[in-house]
Amino acid sequence: MQPIIETKQLTHTYSAGTPFEHTALDSVDFCAYPGEYLGIIGHTGSGKSTLIQHLNALLRPTSGTVLFQDTDIWSDPKITKRTRFQVGLVFQYPEYQLFEETVYKDISFGPKNMGLDDKEIDRRVRSAAYFVGLRDDHLEKSPFELSGGQKRRVAIAGVIAMEPKVLILDEPTAGLDPEGVESILGNIREYHQAHNATVILVSHSMEEVARSVDRLVAVNDGKIPFQGPPREVFRHGDELEQMGLGVPQLTRVFHRLRAMGVDIDPSVYTLDQAKAAILEKLGKGAV
């Protein structure tokens, strides 16, 4: 399959030529496929934020290229601008970027900048609001009257309304309580399925990423040390721990069980997998 978005030997250096020079990304080859649900993990300062800001042309590579559907996104200013709409980026704590008088107007900011007609804008605003679970009577309210969690939904809807082919979310659940986390992750999953869009979830919560994504990309020190299905990535438990990331709690428990001499697959990472693995063992015992 052809990647929908891809970086080739991407390097980014901040404040080049000053004493503060810092290479945030070092020859990174990254790709995401159409319809894929991808997770990017890495601690603060690992380079993951720099990476995602390249994917929608907010940052220009110091060297290397970023390709969207096989076209260099910096080859023409028009393509650069179009990429920003096709690759939607939801920043961390996006609720702090709301500015309009009403929720409706705020969500329509992106679609308006795309130059769509009013009817299409209206359709997109309503469908985006629906995806994040906002009711119609929320739309005419001021975003500043809403609760923190609802504000975040508005901000996410503002990006979804552009109907991007690739949707990137940077820590979309930061600071939310378990209920809020579940519901936001559910909304994102729905969008992913309904639009068959590529979704890239950036997080440092292993549990959260593990249960959502098809493939994981670990970023550390401006490089990608591992990538692959969660099961494979979590095999590198010790290395991940050293990067300040760690593995899901149940994976750790299973690693311990194995160390105690139990013949069990240590690469489980969700509750269901763990339960199934234990029951299977017990089932054999009952026979």
């Binding site: 549990e207 709690q249 149940l250 339960k275 234990i278």
Partner: peptide, 28 residues
């Protein structure tokens, strides 16, 4: 916590496990 959750689910399935094994070590 996921450890408690797992033990609880096993208990629901009819196995006798303690629910107060909170840490990784205790759960294992």
């Amino acid at each position: 916590p996921q450890t408690t959750q797992l033990l609880w689910e096993l208990r629901q399935a009819g196995y006798d496990v303690p629910l107060d094994a909170l840490s990784d070590e205790e759960c294992a």
